[in-house]
């Protein structure tokens, strides 16, 4: 795995500074139904290749990031601040 993780705020930082939550999935709406919630909480695509994950820069800026990473090569393609990128989507 990447020994260094690019943080959009702090630059490349050692992996040990981060906490990994897992798949960066959109949380279903409360009334989305059992299947959608099962999918969100329990089922994973678990791809071999590019994967979007939530990483928290715990010992740094404490921002939650979406890290796009290749699970076969460990190369990190991209990382973005999850809140800022969503807000940009909302208010371009």
């Amino acid at each position: 795995m990447a020994s260094l993780v690019p943080c959009p705020h702090c630059g490349a930082r050692p992996k040990e500074e981060f906490t990994i939550k897992g798949a960066a999935l959109a949380r279903p709406t409360p009334d989305a139904g059992t299947e959608a919630w099962m999918d969100y909480v329990y089922l994973r695509d678990n791809p071999r290749g590019l994967y979007e994950e939530y990483w928290h820069h715990t010992s740094g800026c404490r921002r939650w990031l979406v890290v796009t990473r290749d699970t076969a090569t460990h190369d990190i393609e991209h990382s973005r601040d999850v809140a800022l990128s969503q807000l940009t989507d909302i208010r371009p």
Binding site: M1, S3, G22, N46, E53, T71, T73
Partner: peptide
């Protein structure tokens, strides 16, 4: 475990 999804059979120095 190293803590992240992986199909590469190798680990992290940390």
């Amino acid at each position: 475990i190293d803590g992240y999804n992986s199909y590469a059979q190798r680990g992290n120095l940390a």
